[in-house]
Computed example of a mutant assay.
Amino acid sequence: MAQKLTATTTGVINAEPAGVWAVLIDPELLSQAFFGAEVETDWRAGSPITFSGEWNGKSFQDKGEIVTVEPDKLLRFTHYSPLSGQPDLPENYHTVTFALTPAKGGTELTISQSNAGSEEERTHSEANWAQVLGTVKQLAER
Rank of each mutant, 00 (worst) to 15 (best):
M1H: 14
A2D: 05
Q3S: 15
K4D: 12
L5Y: 05
T6S: 15
T6R: 10
T10W: 05
G11H: 06
V12G: 08
I13T: 07
A15Q: 11
P17Y: 15
G19V: 04
G19A: 15
G19H: 12
V20T: 09
W21V: 05
W21R: 09
W21S: 07
L24D: 05
D26M: 09
D26S: 14
P27F: 12
Q32D: 11
F35T: 07
A37R: 11
E38V: 13
V39K: 05
V39Q: 10
T41F: 04
T41S: 08
T41W: 03
W43Y: 11
A45Q: 15
A45S: 15
A45K: 15
G46C: 01
S47H: 13
P48S: 11
P48T: 06
P48W: 05
I49E: 06
I49M: 13
I49D: 04
T50E: 07
F51V: 03
S52M: 09
G57H: 03
G57S: 00
K58I: 00
D62T: 02
K63F: 00
I66F: 05
I66A: 09
V67M: 13
V67P: 04
T68K: 11
V69K: 10
V69D: 06
D72F: 07
D72L: 05
K73T: 07
L75C: 07
L75N: 02
L75D: 01
R76I: 10
T78D: 08
T78Q: 08
H79D: 00
S84W: 08
S84P: 04
Q86V: 07
P87K: 09
D88Y: 06
L89R: 13
N92G: 08
T97C: 08
F98A: 14
A99S: 14
A99C: 10
L100F: 04
L100G: 04
P102Y: 14
P102L: 12
A103E: 09
A103P: 01
A103D: 08
A103N: 09
K104C: 04
G105T: 03
T107G: 05
E108T: 14
T110N: 09
T110K: 15
I111L: 15
S112D: 02
A116D: 06
G117M: 00
G117P: 00
S118K: 10
S118C: 09
S118V: 06
S118I: 03
E120G: 06
E120Q: 15
H124S: 14
S125F: 02
S125K: 12
Q131M: 05
Q131E: 02
L133W: 03
T135K: 14
K137Y: 00
R142D: 11
